[in-house]
């Protein structure tokens, strides 16, 4: 299925958010996630199914003022 990861279109196998993050190379990294504008905390990733067309945001600590 097709999802958007940080604005880029990606093809992934149907999966939960936890599995998708691992498949996309974010496994073990310090990141926070939101699906379709809603925050998904770490403990909820395994039970959050992704659907075709979902917009996934994956963010990390960055410089800020």
């Amino acid at each position: 299925m097709r999802i958007f990861v940080n604005g880029d279109q990606r093809e992934i196998e149907p999966a939960t958010l936890a599995l998708a993050l691992a498949a996309l190379g974010y496994g073990g990294k310090k990141v926070a996630t939101a699906v379709n504008g809603r925050f998904v905390p770490v403990p909820a990733r395994a039970a959050t199914a992704l659907n075709d067309g979902d917009k996934l945001e994956v963010v990390a600590p960055m410089q800020g003022g």
Binding site: N6, K29, E57, V59, A60, M62, Q63, G64, G65
Partner: peptide
């Protein structure tokens, strides 16, 4: 210190 969150690219 202030910090922010920004999109993190995958390892590739």
């Amino acid at each position: 210190v202030t910090v922010s969150l920004r999109r993190e690219a995958g390892p590739e």
